[in-house]
Design a protein around this nucleic acid. Structure first.
Length: 623
RNA sequence: GCGCCUGUAGCUCAGUGGAUAGAGCAUCUGCCUCCGGAGCAGAAGGUCGGGGGUUCGAAUCCCUUCAGGCGCACCA
């Protein structure tokens, strides 16, 4: 069996900054593996530059995947007019100068390009030999702060926290994997006048129990909060005592602070239980509550007043952004300090922005928050820029997402119109997937089944959330999300498990050579790939899709859209089933053919597992 | 009123300048001596909300219009 070094197309290196979605940042590590598409792009660009007059050198070759060939280059059409030549003529000229690729002019001047099988197998081999599957780190050197999840102390997490948590986490994972230095921040609501009410109520009703009740703690607190609120509204005397309690809290009264700390600590414990269950990276170290910024708020207001960015209006301190007006045509204010002297959340957001720039040295700050708050962030960013807290070198982005709807098309509520608890949602998904799995044949022991149910239930929920365009609303439909067919998390987990099953079988059949692979180790370069073998169309199709993993992740990081990764993984899975249907693997009658196919299986499995992991979804070995 | 988001097959959705607009579900037809059929191949199904414009080329960019959702002073 022949083993080769990985051949590459012999072309000039790509011109920096051309043909890349995003300019490479300083210090970025360039992987040894160059994607086939990038090689093709570089080759066509080089040929195009030879053919065109000097001033048109560097023309984008516009290389895309094609139905009619492996790739097509459309750049000839775009440049034809400038070059005063026919696109077909240019195409023919370019095709003649391409070496190592088959190219022919088609239609009005498209260049249909076919890559040699040898190049395809080399790419599979090279990615398999790399512990990062050939993924680059285009985000290295970039410091990113991601603000997401943000539940409220003394309240249960509910459906409204799902999307921020799940999307934010996926973005954190992808950006980190691409080399960014990511700081997670969970800006929990742990401060404000509502705690005066709750603490006062607890103080007056020492007999009520809420602490240390595990999962019940939060629901008890949530109930007490509502009771306290009702009393606040019904009883003026209690309202007065509550207001006094706010003052006590803000002035650091020991007894009050101690109760507040209990509330925060118990709440954080409960949040972490949910994060663990959902597989969210956030933990105790990521809490960055509003209380942390309390001392900075008067500073923020003073500075804005001093610089004239903010003014007093109707007793409140407000700032305006050009062009933002309300229904009456009047400018809409951003309220940094309320009439009663309390601070609005605008003040807190400005303070956090300042810290994230000054202390965390962020290059990019992301707010994964529902789309309703778009106007708020627009104004906060505008005012922070004018105040000098947010320099032009730092990018602050609101990453908005749509609403989770019920099957009635309205924001998701329980039948009685109440907010849906996040924990209940997770229970529902697990129950639904359990029913599905139990209906199938399986040989799982109870504990294993529970583990699979958990993994698949969370996958169902998270994938359903991530696979839709972020900014759109989507309907929360449990039956659809646990479907085993179509573009669902469960289907991808299954596809992965199936690949692992094949590889297990292979390692049993050929113990010595393939041993390391069985453990799922990345040391899969023990698997020999014979690059001289012809590639079946479905093998090639699969390999070319696997080759696009890196480009897909770059897109996700750029657009901050995890659904692109979902779509990509689904493409991988469907390309795999086509391949597997057409090409016998274990039953291949030739050892070399089998080895190549196993390599494809291995790369598919690792790509799916890595991709799912970047979405925050587990990939069980068996389903 | 202003702003933002959305409008693509019966349903749920991909597709941010390239050739006949793609999946899944549902419907219909083939392929089962099948390495996990949770599959594969095929058929049918679309005025890409409407109308202008830019371009060699538009679901995609610009303008306009219609429909739906959301936001617009002391909640976050």
């Amino acid at each position: 069996m022949k083993l080769h070094m990985f051949p590459r197309l012999a072309v000039a290196p790509p011109i920096p900054g051309r043909g890349l979605t995003q300019p490479r940042l300083e210090g970025s590590r360039v992987s040894d593996v160059v994607a086939i598409k990038d090689q093709v792009e570089a080759a066509v660009q080089a040929a195009l530059s030879q053919v065109l007059p000097a001033e048109l050198a560097g023309t984008d070759p516009v290389v895309r995947r094609s139905d009619r060939a492996d790739f097509q280059a459309n750049g000839t059409l775009a440049v034809a007019k400038k070059a005063a030549r026919s696109p077909r003529d240019i195409g023919a000229d370019v095709a003649g100068r391409l070496t190592g690729l088959t190219a022919e002019v088609s239609g009005p001047g498209f260049l249909n390009i076919t890559v040699p099988d040898e190049l395809v197998w080399s790419a599979v081999s090279a990615r398999l030999a790399d512990d990062r599957l050939g993924l680059t780190t285009p985000r290295s050197g970039e410091r990113v702060v991601v603000d997401y999840s943000a539940p409220n102390v003394a309240k249960e997490m509910h459906v409204g926290h799902l999307r921020s948590s799940v999307i934010g986490d996926a973005l954190v994972r992808v950006l980190s994997h691409l080399g960014a230095d990511v700081t997670r921040q969970n800006h929990i609501g742990d401060w404000g006048t509502q705690f005066g009410m709750l603490i006062q109520y607890l103080d007056e009703h020492p007999q009520v129990s809420w602490k240390g009740r595990g999962a019940e703690t939060m629901s008890a607190l949530d109930g007490l909060y509502k009771t306290a609120r009702a009393e606040f509204e019904a009883d003026p005397a209690f309202a007065d005592r509550s207001r006094a309690r706010v003052v006590a809290l803000q002035s650091g009264d020991d007894a009050t602070l101690s109760m507040w700390r209990d509330l925060v600590a118990e709440s954080e414990k409960a949040f972490e239980v949910i994060y663990d269950r959902l597989g969210i990276l956030l933990d105790g170290g990521d809490f960055d509550g509003e209380s942390r910024y309390n001392d900075a708020l008067s500073d923020v207001v003073d500075h804005l007043l001093r610089t004239g960015i903010a003014t007093e209006s109707d007793g409140a301190v407000v700032a305006f952004t050009d062009g933002v007006t309300g229904p009456d045509g009047d400018p809409v204010p951003l309220i940094v300090r309320k009439k009663d002297g309390g601070f609005g959340y605008a003040a807190t957001d400005l303070a956090t922005l300042r810290l994230r720039v000054d202390h965390y040295k962020a290059d990019r700050i992301l707010y994964v928050v529902d789309v309703w708050q778009a106007l708020h962030f627009r104004m906060v960013f505008d005012i922070a820029r004018r105040a000098g807290w947010l320099p032009d070198t730092v990018q602050a982005e609101h990453v908005p997402f749509g609403t989770v709807l019920g099957t009635d098309g309205r924001p998701f509520k329980t039948r009685s119109g109440k907010t849906v608890r996040l924990a209940d949602l997770l229970d529902d998904a697990e129950a639904a997937i359990r029913a599905v799995l139990e209906a199938k044949e399986h040989d799982f022991a109870d504990a294993e089944l529970d583990a699979v149910v958990h993994a698949a239930g969370m996958a169902a929920i998270k994938y359903a959330d991530l696979s839709n365009t972020r900014t759109k609303d989507y309907v929360f439909d449990v039956d659809q999300m646990v479907a085993t067919t179509g573009n669902t998390g469960v289907y991808l987990q299954y596809a992965h498990a199936r690949v692992r099953s094949i590889l297990r079988k292979a390692s049993a059949a050929a113990p010595a050579q393939l041993e390391p692979m069985a453990a799922g180790s990345a040391a899969a370069n023990v698997m020999p790939v014979d690059i001289t073998l012809p590639a079946h169309p479905t093998e090639k199709a699969l390999a070319l899709i696997l080759d696009a993993f890196d480009a897909t992740l770059r897109d996700v990081a750029l657009a901050l859209e995890p659904h692109r990764l979902c779509g990509y993984l689904y493409d991988v899975a469907t390309a795999f089933t086509r391949f597997y249907d057409a090409c016998p693997v274990m039953k291949a009658d030739d050892d070399a053919v089998r080895a190549n196919r196993l390599a494809l299986c291995d790369l598919t499995g690792q790509t799916l597992a890595t991709g799912l992991d970047l979405l925050g979804i587990r990939a069980p070995q068996r389903m």
